[in-house]
């Protein structure tokens, strides 16, 4: 892997060493002048500055080259999680099921709440699982660099591999949760329909959004580790504003909120992805309950966060793990 990054060095013709510089009349017997500078010697042999940031296309290529590491690291983290438990990998599916059971007992049985929402338990559980996906990705992203300094300081790889790998781990976790969710949907009499397939594009967009956000948080968290202490509060606030436990459109219908607030609530990326999944999976959640241009919002957020987050992370590539 030899990269040419010597923008700052004087352009020296590669190939056979010629007399460098304007002093062209050096003795031909000794192929180089006695005082050849280190920079000239380096340039003549194609050496590059250690630890410099690659260009964006080169960075993407290296990241692609490491794709197997990204997936292997994610799977390894996922399996290592429950390796000490007696039931082992069974917990992958038990944890989300128990989670959903708690919500069912509290909201479905004890409070018997519907809040004007049909199929409230599937509505709630979908919201919780989808928001948890974003929440955990952001949290894991914040610690992706600052929590893996040993790895960053010992080995060379594009650092974006770490936050991306953590997001992939969360995606794998979500797929287990979705198995539990399907069981709950069927148990509550929600019929399987062709619209379930819409979950695939919705989750793809959400994953891109999560990955971008995780990359941004990874850079911030690497520079200021204190952010990891703050994030749980930010994320909880975000959850309450995202209509995980209540229906945004029902609330908006009854009240006359300022237009800006309505737009803000409806354009909130977490709310957008949650509503798309509910629309895909729950039969009674009709299209008229979705905000306008919801797919455009979903795609826009994914592209903005994905591309912007990647570039933002790459800009500080050479600084991670230092100092």
């Amino acid at each position: 892997m030899r990269q040419v990054l010597l923008d700052e060095l004087p352009a020296t013709p590669s190939g056979p060493p010629g007399p460098p510089g304007p002093r062209g009349l050096s003795t031909p017997a000794d192929s180089r002048p006695a005082a050849e500078s280190a920079a000239d010697l380096a340039a003549r042999h194609g050496l590059t500055v250690s630890g410099a940031r690659p260009t964006l296309p080169a960075y993407v290529r290296r990241l692609w080259h490491r794709r197997h590491f990204i997936t292997a690291f994610a799977t390894a983290k996922l399996t290592a999680q429950y390796s000490q438990a007696k039931l082992g990998q069974l917990w992958q599916i038990m944890t989300p099921l128990l989670n959903a059971a708690v919500y069912y007992v509290i909201f479905g049985v004890l409070m018997n709440t519907k809040r004007g929402v049909p199929d409230y338990v599937p509505f709630l559980v979908t919201g919780v699982f989808v928001f948890t996906f974003t929440q955990q990705s952001v949290m894991a992203g914040t610690r992706a660099i600052s929590g893996s300094l040993g790895l960053v300081r010992a080995l060379h790889f594009p650092r974006a591999a770490l936050p991306l790998s953590y997001c992939l781990q969360q995606l794998q976790q979500l797929l287990f949760s979705l198995c539990a969710l399907v069981a709950i949907l069927l148990a509550f009499g929600v019929p399987p329909t062709a619209s379930w397939l819409l979950a695939v594009p919705a989750l793809t967009l959400q994953f891109t959004f999560n990955a971008g956000l995780a990359l941004v948080m990874a850079r911030l968290g690497a520079q200021t580790p204190d952010i990891a202490q703050l994030m749980p509060f930010v994320l909880r606030t975000w959850m309450y504003a995202s209509g995980v436990m209540w229906s945004i459109d029902t609330v908006l219908k009854d009240r006359h909120l300022p237009h800006a607030l309505t737009v803000l609530l409806e354009a909130n990326p977490a709310a957008v992805y949650i509503d798309l999944m509910r629309f895909a999976l729950i039969d009674s959640f009709h299209a008229n309950r979705l905000p306008d241009h919801v797919w455009a919002w979903a795609t826009g957020w994914a592209l903005l966060a994905g591309v912007g987050g990647f570039i933002y992370f790459w800009k500080a590539e050479e600084t991670y793990g230092r100092g």
């Binding site: 892997m1 030899r2 280190a38 920079a39 380096a42 042999h45 194609g46 050496l47 590059t48 500055v49 250690s50 630890g51 690291f73 390894a76 983290k77 290592a80 893996s148 040993g150 790895l151 300081r153 010992a154 080995l155 060379h156």
Partner: peptide
Amino acid sequence: RIYTDGQPSLLGVNAALM
């Protein structure tokens, strides 16, 4: 400055192992 041919690597993968 430090100029290198390719990417020098430290021997040791300890941090990557679980």
